[in-house]
């Protein structure tokens, strides 16, 4: 990312930070939610949605809070970027989430899974770079 020099580049940098913050909070959110539903799994019956036992867990509330924060960032990003580009850039979360699953939930990342994550990262980069070029022309 280029250093901030002019108002135009400040405006240009915002979507990237927005996307990054959004993806990080989504990651935090899903990790919290997973911890929450794991804790309450024995109570969680498919047909008992009206009782909402999962909402009892503090992890679930933390997850919801993170999700709302990520949503605020998402709205800021969406105002600036076309939906198609924003939606694909935020796919960077598919890199963060398995990493977080590994770090915080003790789930394993096999080498094949790591390759898949790498390809996702490549795809996000291809789109981000394409958007940079459009932006430079404007």
């Amino acid at each position: 990312m280029t250093p901030i020099q002019s108002p135009a580049s400040v405006k240009g940098a915002l979507p990237y930070w927005g996307v990054l913050c959004c993806a990080l909070f989504v990651t935090a959110s899903v990790v919290c939610l997973k911890k929450g539903v794991d804790n309450t799994q024995n109570l969680l019956n498919t047909l008992s949605w009206l009782e909402m036992p999962a909402l009892v867990s503090g992890w679930v509330w933390a997850g919801i809070l993170c999700f709302i924060i990520s949503f605020v960032f998402w709205l800021k990003v969406l105002k600036v970027l076309p939906l198609n580009i924003a939606f694909n850039l935020v796919n960077i979360e598919h890199v963060f989430v398995p990493l977080a699953s590994y770090l915080f939930l003790g789930e394993m990342i096999s080498s094949m899974r790591a390759v898949g994550i790498g390809i996702v990262l490549l795809g996000v980069w291809v789109i981000a770079e394409a958007y940079c070029r459009i932006e430079e022309r404007v």
Binding site: P82, L83, N84, I85, N88, N91, H94, P98, S110, M112, R113, V115, G116, I117, G118, I119, V120, L121, L122, G123, V124, W125, V126, I127, A130
Partner: peptide
């Protein structure tokens, strides 16, 4: 729905992401 333009480069990125995610899905 939104009449957004799909450039070849964007398709390329989308396909990479999809392929990557499918590999992750197929992995154990």
């Amino acid at each position: 729905m939104l009449k957004e333009k799909m450039t070849p480069r964007l398709w390329c990125g989308v396909l990479l992401i999809v392929v990557g995610l499918l590999i992750v899905g197929a992995s154990q």
